[in-house]
Amino acid sequence: MQKKSLKYVIIGDGHAGNSAAETLRKGSPGSDIVIISTKPTHYFDHSLLATFLLDKKDITSLYVYPYTWYKDNNIRLRLNQTVTKVIPDKHELILSHNERVYYDRLLIASGAKPKLPESLSRYKSLLTVFTDAVDAMKLREKLGTFRHVTMVGGDCIGLHLAGAMLKLGKSVTFVLNEYNFWPLEFDETVKDKLIGCLKKKHIEVIADDMTTEIVKDGTRLNVLTKNGKIVKTDLAFLTSGMVPNIDFLDGSGIDVQTGILVDEYMHTSAQDIWAAGECATVYYPELKDYRQTTGEVNAKMLGNISAKNMLDEKRAVSLAEPGKITIEGEDFITYGWKGFSIDI
């Protein structure tokens, strides 16, 4: 337990950030805790996103904690504001509205955004993303305007989304290859099993192929593949993996690779700065190597470990137990996610 009251600033209002905030509050009741998030919405449960499309519930139904939790725990939430710079020497953040925010100890848990393969970068404006509460809200508003969707790639949320689309009477096509179903432990057997399951759900699967082009066709879209297939669709969802949100670290001197490099104590190369969740590339002693992690389970665990270290309770990281998702009675192993299913 710390004696001195510090100001802890957490960048990111996701699983890692909130789990860290909770741990910090327990460990240091008198300290200042601030969460800064670029998102206008608040910490939500990913596994509820798809079901959110099916009902008329308020966006707050997605939220993990009610606002009163933050009030009761005296955790300051700063939503809809973006950190543009970190200055480790001054222990200072600069926000996009030119405010300078001081921290004693900083946790970067800024998460990740959908990965846009280079080959598809030209078609960014034609692709729809479905990663957070705002995406879900926007999609729900136009549910009546489309009938067919195509998943460019696939991931857990993609499966989950497909489930919701089926339930809404939309038809679904997956364009898959092994690179873009990355949260699952993926090999040929897993792939065949997965394709079988999807087909059982009357989902069209275009396997061992890649989306190469997306063309506007009136109000609709044509998704073209490497093997010459043309999928006529209304919406093309980008579900090809994630990249860490670390643009704002440019010039900060903090070591990054894919994500922010942290040691087994989640500490970055800069003094008093830790990183956790999908934005971090973590050194696992068990692997004697760095690994990019994904998913709620990992993020919560890493957030918690970071917080312990920020409270000077030295705690090293270890690999999480693998989880599973179930499709048509078949289990698939994942590292990091839980609660997702196509059978919603």
């Binding site: 933050y70 939430l77 001081y102």
Partner: peptide, 16 residues
Amino acid sequence: SEQVSIAGHLGPGMYL
């Protein structure tokens, strides 16, 4: 600047 910027002073359920 933290003292004079409103962004850091909102309650948790407020919209900025």
